[in-house]
Amino acid sequence: MSDLEIQADLGRQARARSPRRRRISVAEALAGAFALFLIAAAFAPSLVAPGDPLAIDPLSAFQAPNLVHWFGTDESGRDIFTRVSHGTGGSLVIGTLATGIGLGLGIVLGTMAGMLGRIVDFTVNRFLEVLFAFPGLLLALLVILVFGPGIQTATVAVGLATAPGYARIIRAQLISVRSAAFVEAATVLGRGRWQILVRHILPNTLAPLFVLGTLGIGQAVVWASALSYLGLGAAPPAAEWGAMLSAGRTYITSAWWLAFFPGLFIVLTAVTATSLGRALERRLRHA
């Protein structure tokens, strides 16, 4: 099991419980609004926070959150809201790339297991089983041990660490679709293997990947920032959330906001991804 498989499972159960709800709930609306904010901050950070994230102003160092500096200022007087907003792009890019790597590998492994017959399935499954004996962060640490710390390695590490989860979900989905009654019905109608694959199996397997990807980005952001926090990912001058939090740790006794707000953004991103993933799940299936 992986966090992702549990998340995906919970989404499915929640959907089964609320069969059709067209209305957008308050939580979904909030999640959507924050997602829009994140996207805006990622593509045009100066739109959200016009200041310079690196502008030093020693006179206004360590200001608590106030009307001018919503999230306060850090040890060099840099505005934390500006820094957090400008860090969005970096964090999201790492999260998205890591998810892409994990999902890509997962698709390859899962499809191999699901489509290429028993022997391949058995082998891939054993391989995945072994990977699950490495808890996620340990697998990531192993990758970093081999390739050395840094943003790229951290991204790849998170991608690799999440791949087994994706692979297993995709395999299960493929197998359940492949043996579904509507696939048999198509066989009885005289459709060929290819036609069935293209018309029924692939679309029904791929649709849930949107949900998985959404859930996955949230997780990947958390993991990547964990690596940065541990000093193995992005290094402190960069305005990446994990790195900012790590740098702010020194001052938590006197200026809690340095570490608090970057972390809050990580949490909100993860919650948003979960809520949106579940909302997407509900709507995709009941379209």
């Binding site: 009654a181 509507f182 048999e184 019905a185 009885v188 109608l189 005289g190 018309r199 029904n204």
Partner: peptide, 18 residues
């Protein structure tokens, strides 16, 4: 195959949900 049609007990699951 076209000469041989089939009707199933659980019609719903015999249709592609999409």
């Amino acid at each position: 195959r076209p000469e041989l049609g089939a009707v199933y007990q659980d019609a719903l699951s015999s249709f592609d949900p999409r």
